[in-house]
Amino acid sequence: MKEAFVMVGFLEITLVIFMQWQVYLKKIVDTFSLSSYAISIFLFVDGAILNNINLLILSALTAVVRGFFIPFFIRKKFRKEYYLEREIKSVVPTAMSIVLSLFFVVVGYIVYHATLYNSIGLPGGSIPIALLFQGIFLIMSRNNAFVQLIGYMVMENSLFLFGGYLFPELPLVIEGGILLDLIGIVMISGIIMRLREENVSNIIDEFKEFKG
C-alpha cells in the first residue's frame, strides 16, 4: 500500500503542476476531477485491504462530491462558450509558476524531513505537505476565482489522502462534516465567483482602498 500511496501522491503532484500550466479553466476543472477520482480509488483499495468501512464510505463520498458534483457545479457556472473561460492575467508568469510549484514540492520535502519524519517515519509523508504548499501557491499565483477555489480543494484533497492513509480510524463524523462544509463553500463561492468574474477588471481598478 505504501507504493500505491507514493504513486498516487506523485500523480497528484504532477496533476497540480499540470493545472499550474493550463490557462483554460475547463481543463483545470477536469484535471481536478481526475485527481479526486484517483484519491477515491486509492482510498477504496486501501479500505478494501484494511477492511475498514469508514474508508469505503469516505472513498464513495470523495468520488461523488469532489470527483463528480463539484466539478459539475463549477462547469455549470461557466459561460456557454467555455473556451472563453480563461485566465486573463496571472500574477506570476506561467513558466516561472511551474518552476516555483516544483520548488514548493522540494520545500515540502525538506520541511517534512526536518520536522516530522522522525516522528511519523513514513517516507512518502512529504507528499501531502508538498501538495498543501502547491495548493496555496496555486491560489496565490492566480487571480481567477475558479482557479483559487480549485487550489483550495487541492489542499483539502491532500488532506484526505493524508488522513485517509495515515489515520484511517479518524471519526467519520469529522470527515463527513468537512465534506458538507466543502459543498457549502462551493455553493456560496459559486454565487460570489460568478459576480466577481464578470467584473474582475473593474474590481482591480477599485482596489486602492484595499491597500494598507
Partner: peptide, 28 residues
C-alpha cells in the same frame, strides 16, 4: 514564449524523478 512553459514542465518531471528517488529509495 509558451515554449518556456513546456520546457519548465519537462524540467519539473526530470527533477521530480530525483525527488521520487529520494522519497522511495528506488523501491518502486
Amino acid at each position: 514564449f509558451k515554449n518556456f512553459e513546456y520546457v519548465a514542465v519537462a524540467f519539473t518531471f526530470a527533477f521530480l524523478a530525483i525527488l521520487v528517488y529520494f522519497t522511495t529509495g528506488g523501491s518502486i
